[in-house]
Amino acid sequence: MFEARLAQGSIFAKVIEGLRELVTEATWECSGNGITLQAMDSSHVALVSLVLRSDGFETYRCDRNMSLGISLTSMSKVLKMMGKDDTLTIRVNDDSDAIVLSMESQNQEEFAEYELRLMDLDSEHLGIPDTDYSCVVKMPSTKFSRICRDMAILGDSVTICSTKDGVKFGAKGDVGQGSIRLNQSTNVDKEEDAVSIELREAVALTFAVRYLNMFCKAAPLSNQVNLSMSEDTPLMCEFKVGDMGHIRFYLAPKIED
């Protein structure tokens, strides 16, 4: 049997909202350590890796390792029925072909239970190498979302150039061109508002902005986003999921031929 209970069910709903535009179905790997998921978009340009550690749940029980094929589209629809302060329990009974989502209101006066059929998915698992990135930019996730949205107006690709002083996002297309430059914050009251750059080497990489905008669907999970970059390496765009884990999106760069 697998059972995991989350007092703030809304966190799980935000995780699903963060994933479901990039991948519509995925295999969840459940073990004693927690839940992990790795999936690529249909064109194999981007990859998402999710980790939710067991100690982040109020209660967590996983008697044996399980691979659960789940439609994220359906799960998202079910989770929309959850109240914003509801407690969420995810359960898979032994020998069952369904996942049960139970939602309980804070005053314990309402209790809802939904079942979703599990799917047999062919999933390909990739080995993600440990990388010492040349540059890690940390910035408010709302700012990153706004920049990606704005860049998409100008063109299909965004070039991210990072130096020790700042990071520049630029795009050009048929309508024109533009760029936004952020300097490293020198003095901020709140850490979550800061832009910080750890840099070993300057980088300039070009990415499809459409994918960056999909990654930004996970921005409500975290005040800050980390962008890790090296030349000729996929971007890693990370949002923390509270102190229980993370969503890491990887995006293959575009190159000039």
Partner: peptide
């Protein structure tokens, strides 16, 4: 011309 690379260029299937 800008070419989009694939995840498979960088990460191998396990």
């Amino acid at each position: 011309y800008i070419r989009q690379l694939s995840m498979h260029t960088f990460f191998v299937t396990l």
